[in-house]
Design a protein around this nucleic acid. Structure first.
Length: 420
RNA sequence: GUGGUUGUAGCUCAGUUGGCAGAGCGCUUGGUUGUGGUCCAAGUGGUCGUGGGUUCAAGUCCCAUCAUCCACCCCA
């Protein structure tokens, strides 16, 4: 253990023996996104730092203390992306998406970086997938997005989770509500925990998140809920979202105290929480962000989006035993006897591969017994031993590993045999 | 950043009042010439996280440090 270099804190290797699980999930995600006609976007891993302070919010924890920022040679501050919506919106504006089409449905998948203390379901490099709809201010788009997230977890076979929704109202109205909230809570400010006191002025909505029992009690008793302070328009909007969800048989619960850690959300927000994760139980979260495109310098464009954590999903699926306990199968394993047949044998291997079958062969010059053990370990469907006898007769025995039975086939007919 | 947990073989873990570093699994080889899974046998594998200290003697006791996991926090 002395001089070994280890991976950076909060990062991990996805090993060859485990990767099939990720690939299985990734493939399903791709196919579901395409069912909903979302197209993929890939943006750079790093961006200018100000992109995130302007979108995510200067006073959020993400920007305040968790970003991996550095100066490049031109002394410009760059940051490893801590989330992806900002990058997607940047790209949307930069490439004038709104001129190409008035609506865009986009999905993404990739690694993000936040310098947090690692914990169950929380890493410093972690993967998220997510999607955004640009160009619709109607509840249909909120519901299509929620339906997409809902369908993903359903189709992956996950059982123990719940969808929560809430609404934050429009920005102007929310500011009015924040004033009311401040007024009603002010008499109790001194009785709250230090954290809440601090947030009272900076981001008072987060007081709903406090787990301190005393603060909770105060909030329960004296804090007005935003849902009771919506304008008629906002109420109607939220009602429409709910009735569309009902129409699609999407089960949800309303959590009137749910808020979001990123500043850009407006109106409808939602979260899906798993019941068999630890304290990091949010599988995905998102909502409407009608002002972000404009705030980042684009034309006003209403949008909704969500982001979902991959590691948490994998942990939850693992806990529900949703992965088969086996990696990929191999069509055929070829045991090569000695150097006299090596050239010809490798040529045969290449021909079978060219014909579209997966083939592995011995690379270690071991005994036939060892090669057969290898064939078994690699879960080959068939095995062939190639030695001088075979080359002389021009025939090989193709053994079906499961039954142990072998069939004699001419060497130039191997591909025909496999193709049946 | 604040608390707590755990660090012994590739993996999962034993290791008594301080007295020769262990098991199972895995991996390698063999069980008659060139055929796997089960079985049998042998073999491989560890500076006991790292650095100090106490002791005749430390995996075991003490101190420090690093890593890890969990919770707070935050969030996906």
């Amino acid at each position: 253990m002395k001089n070994k270099i280890k991976s950076v804190k909060g990062t991990y290797d996805l090993l060859p023996s485990e990767i099939y699980k990720w690939q299985e999930v990734e493939n399903k995600l791709r196919s579901i996104f395409s069912l909903y006609n979302f197209l993929e976007i890939r943006t750079p891993i790093f961006e200018k730092s100000k992109l995130f302070s302007r979108s995510v919010g200067e006073f959020t924890d993400i920007v305040n203390k968790e970003m991996y920022s550095f100066l490049d040679k031109g002394k410009e501050s760059l940051t490893l992306r801590p989330e992806l919506t900002a990058s997607v919106v940047r790209s949307y504006i930069e490439h004038n998406f709104q001129q190409i089409s008035s609506i865009h449905k986009i999905w993404y998948y990739g690694p993000l970086f936040r310098q947090e203390k690692p914990q169950a379901g929380r890493y410093r490099q972690f993967y998220q997938f997510g999607s955004e709809i640009f160009g619709s201010a109607y509840p249909e788009s909120d519901v299509e997005l929620i339906d997409l997230a809902y369908t993903i977890y359903t189709k992956l076979g996950l059982k123990n989770w719940t969808l929560y929704i809430n609404t934050l109202g429009k920005k102007e109205n929310r500011n009015k509500y924040i004033e009311i909230l401040k007024e009603s809570l002010f008499p109790y400010k001194d009785k709250m925990c230090a954290n809440c006191k601090n947030r009272f002025d900076k981001n008072i909505l987060r007081l709903f998140d406090c787990k301190n029992s005393n603060c909770k009690k105060i909030m329960n008793e004296y804090a007005p809920l935003i849902i009771d302070h919506l304008s008629n328009d906002e109420k109607d909007y939220f009602e429409e979202v709910k009735s569309l969800l009902d129409q699609l048989n999407i089960n949800y619960e309303i959590d009137p105290t749910m808020v979001r850690g990123l500043d850009y959300y407006t109106n409808m927000i939602f979260e899906i929480r798993s019941e068999n994760l630890g304290s990091q139980d949010a599988l995905c979260g998102g909502g409407r962000y009608n002002n972000l495109v404009e705030d980042l310098g684009g034309k006003f464009t209403p949008a909704v989006g969500f982001a979902a954590g991959m590691e948490r999903l994998m942990i939850a699926m693992e806990k529900e035993n949703l992965f088969k306990n086996e990696s990929e199968e191999l069509d055929i394993y070829i045991a090569i006897m000695n150097k006299n047949v090596r050239n010809k044998a490798m040529q045969i291997v290449k021909e079978i591969r060219n014909n579209g079958h997966s083939v592995d062969m011995d690379l270690q010059r071991r005994s036939v017994k060892a090669m057969m053990r290898e064939a078994n370990k690699k879960r080959a469907k068939y095995s062939i031993v190639i030695g001088e006898n075979e080359l002389q007769s021009g025939e090989v025995n193709i053994k079906t590993m499961e039954s142990g039975k072998a069939k004699t086939v001419k060497i130039d007919k191997i591909n025909d045999f496999l193709s049946v």
